[in-house]
Amino acid sequence: MSSTTTPAPRSPAPGPASRPGGRRRQGEKPKWGAVAVFLGPAIVLLAFFLFYPAIYTLRLSLYRGRLGEFTGWVGLDNYVRLFTRDPAFLDLSTFPPSGALFNNLLWIVFYVSGCLFFGLIIAVLAGRVRYEAFIKAVVFVPMAIAATALAVIFLFVYAPDPDIGLLNAILGVANAGPVSWLGQKSTVNYALILVGIWGAVGFATVILSAALKGIPIEIMEAARTDGASEPQIFRRIILPMMRIPISVLAVTLVVNVIKIFDLIYVMTVGGPGTASRVIAFTFYQESLSAGKYGYGAAVAVIMLAILIPVMVFNVRRFRSEDVRS
């Protein structure tokens, strides 16, 4: 943020003199014409494409909602059904639990920790070698390509036929397998999560590497002079000093996971059965494929509810940044 921002984001009046927009025009009325021209199109689009549909969906989740219309009031029944009578969404009767909501939890735990783990390792190690740019570019390329392409790449890697699937070919050398990674309930979610991690580590690496380079070299040099080992430096200096970028990155990754769809839709279509469904998949399946609009709307509202704490976190972060400048 620049020095032109003032730490007074709340004051609604048109302005203490120091605010951007010109101190010479004090007492002048806000130029509503210009505001309308510049901000108007965005506001209209946001209102039509986000505000109004959000309220519509919120209301629709309380109806049976045939054809997407407000018919067949059911109150909170859609939600109750999702959480208690829909094993494809949440099934707590078995151990481990299953269902889309639980799968998304698996995604959050393993995908986020996997990305952070590999991202940190690569950022720290690559920073010590001459071919840093090459390593980073290699892990970053999957970020640029479509989840659909990622899915196809790994359909090959996971293929049960050891003449096509690299993984089963490797197992074959050890006289094991072949394993149908995507075809059985016990492995499908982890196989998918690994693809997700493979695709997102580059992003984590770039963010963490930039943060790492922000740590003053003197601090590490001083620690080394005092005889600290490299693992000690990593644990006692690097990790604590990167707490904020790591947590911001983790939050971003959580948001990505809640929205994950393309990869699963292409690789397994939620299967086998409903074993690899996630929330965003359930939404698509129930509302747009099966036409159960009220039920699907409830799923969308649950997605939104899960993301509300993230929104609060982001707004807070932005406010504190604004004040700091």
Partner: peptide
């Protein structure tokens, strides 16, 4: 609004 899942708008 940056964080709102696009799905919330799909049906309408």
């Amino acid at each position: 609004l940056m964080m709102i899942p696009v799905q919330i708008g799909f049906i309408p």
